[in-house]
């Protein structure tokens, strides 16, 4: 029989191991970016960042168009967020509150999009976007990403609306609200934390997306950070610590922003998924 103190120690160890597993690769990206070229290929690896190398982060902005990439990624992510939220709220309400003939179809259609690989839809989307003159544009990327984000966040928002008591909406109806008034004036404020979560999820999807950004946009100055960074994979002419520095600049905002929003994201995500 183990004592509870021993058990406690084992648990602490296990938690630390788990956190180490989760955080190490990101830490390693940072350390690599802060390792002088001379030490990168040394016989024993450098495990702590060399703070003297901090200037690398200023340097890469001169040598690599990181600023443009990040700006494009931000535009795509922000556009995806706005459009997705606008599109998702009303169908989420309909899924939660109405029983109508198309309900099952809508629910299945939203779910089915989870099965479609982006890589499969790239070709037809390429021709559709060509017809709509949306190739090689930021709005084109926003539209493509939104198609994949909307279903996810619709389910999440629906989960939150499910937990609003019917009586509150009925009280609003007695007070003279139309259905639109209820959605805009009662439901949206009440699911605001979930909307925040949905916004974060949409933003990251847009920020992280690679396949469409790679295929639907060709011009250099519309490149997103994901495509820019991917161009380094397997390429040898750029020093590895510069590549990692770009990786850090691209990844860190996402992680920091996410840590702040984490509480809402988890709450929103689980509201939608756990009750299922």
């Amino acid at each position: 029989m183990r004592t509870s103190r021993q058990l406690e120690h084992m648990r602490v160890l296990a938690v630390l191991l788990m956190l180490g597993f989760a955080a190490f690769p990101i830490y390693w990206m940072f350390v690599t970016s802060m390792t002088p070229s001379s030490e990168l290929f040394a016989s024993s690896p450098r495990l702590l960042p060399a703070w003297s190398q901090l200037s690398i982060y200023a340097e890469i902005f001169n040598t690599i168009p990181v600023a443009t990439w990040l700006k494009n990624s931000f535009l795509v992510a922000a556009g995806t967020t706005v459009l997705s939220i606008l599109l998702a709220v009303f169908p989420a309400y309909a899924l939660s509150r109405f029983r109508f003939a198309g309900l099952a179809v809508l629910g299945f259609a939203l779910f089915a999009t989870q099965m479609l690989p982006e890589a499969m839809l790239v070709v037809p989307l390429y021709s559709i976007f060509g017809d709509l003159n949306l190739l090689n544009t930021i709005p084109g990327l926003v539209l493509a990403n939104t198609a994949f984000v909307v279903p996810v966040i619709t389910w999440i928002i629906k989960g939150a609306i499910d937990s609003i008591p019917f009586e509150i909406e009925e009280a609003a109806r007695v007070d003279g609200c139309s259905r639109l008034d209820i959605v805009l004036g009662i439901v949206i404020p009440l699911v605001a934390p979930t909307l925040a979560a949905a916004a974060v999820i949409s933003f990251f999807h847009g920020w992280n997306e690679y396949v469409f950004a790679q295929t639907l946009v060709s011009s250099e100055n519309l490149r997103t950070a994901s495509v820019g960074l991917a161009s380094f994979v397997g390429e040898l002419s750029t020093p590895i610590h510069s590549v990692m520095a770009v990786g850090v600049i691209y990844t860190l905002p996402a992680i920091i922003f996410y840590l702040f929003a984490q509480r809402y994201v988890v709450a929103g995500m689980t509201a939608g998924s756990v009750k299922g």
């Binding site: 008591p165 009586e167 009925e170 007695v174 003279g176 009662i186």
Partner: peptide
């Protein structure tokens, strides 16, 4: 309901 000149008090109060 809004046009019936009524008010409704719910069991769960249904405050906003």
């Amino acid at each position: 309901p809004g046009d019936r000149d009524i008010a409704f008090v719910f069991q769960s109060y249904a405050l906003y």
